[in-house]
Design a protein around this nucleic acid. Sequence first.
DNA 1: GCCCAGGGGGCTC
DNA 2: GAGCCCCATGGG
Length: 228
Amino acid sequence: MVKNTLMEIYDKMSAAFGPRHWWPAESDFEVIVGAILTQSVSWKNVEKAISNLKAANLLSVDALLTVDKDKLTGLIKPTIYYNQKALKLKNFCNYIKHNYNGDIYKLFENDIWQMRKELLSINGIGPETADSIILYAAKKPIFVVDAYTRRIFSRLGFFPNNVTYQVMQDLFMKNLPPNVELYNEYHGLIVELGKAYCKKNKPLCTKCPINTHCLWMTNKNDQVNVTG
DNA sequence: GCCCAGGGGGCTC
DNA sequence: GAGCCCCATGGG
């Protein structure tokens, strides 16, 4: 039964890593900025950028809207793609300014799927970023899927490696209760497990706390080979 | 020098 | 809707 298996995996990861208590940020707005900056970048790089923005007192909708674009790109340089991301930050702030008078909490008053629809309409915000904002900033129960989720759970045999985002998200949301704390921890634990034991192009490690659930993986393309 | 890290947009067919 | 390229730093 998928439901039980998902909870067993959760319990094992939780026992191995302890509570994650994501997202590491001082404010909900900082969560949003981090969600945009972390796209395809390790969190370490994002920390530097956030720290730069904080020092420049730019962690607000109005500040990000008025700051010179070149200055902004300079501050977020550690996060790669800084030109694109500077625009993305401004796009988001622009949307909030014009539709919610600059108040992100007015956006949060929408129901989950309406909020998701609006976020996805903003250039620079895709499924993972939107869902991270909804779960970790708005604190509403939506399951965040990422590259680690795909890699780990395809290796576990839940779905093929080329599965879509939506199919993955549906699996978790149909089999887990809509609980913000649970979704928060589950995604955080997946990332932790992924970083420690499920690297790209490398087989799952025997020390992995959920290896009893694993189908063994041997070749470079993350294809799953069943060995029992 | 090489690979990769908590994606998304835009284009092609 | 899948497949591909672009973006372009910093650490191991």
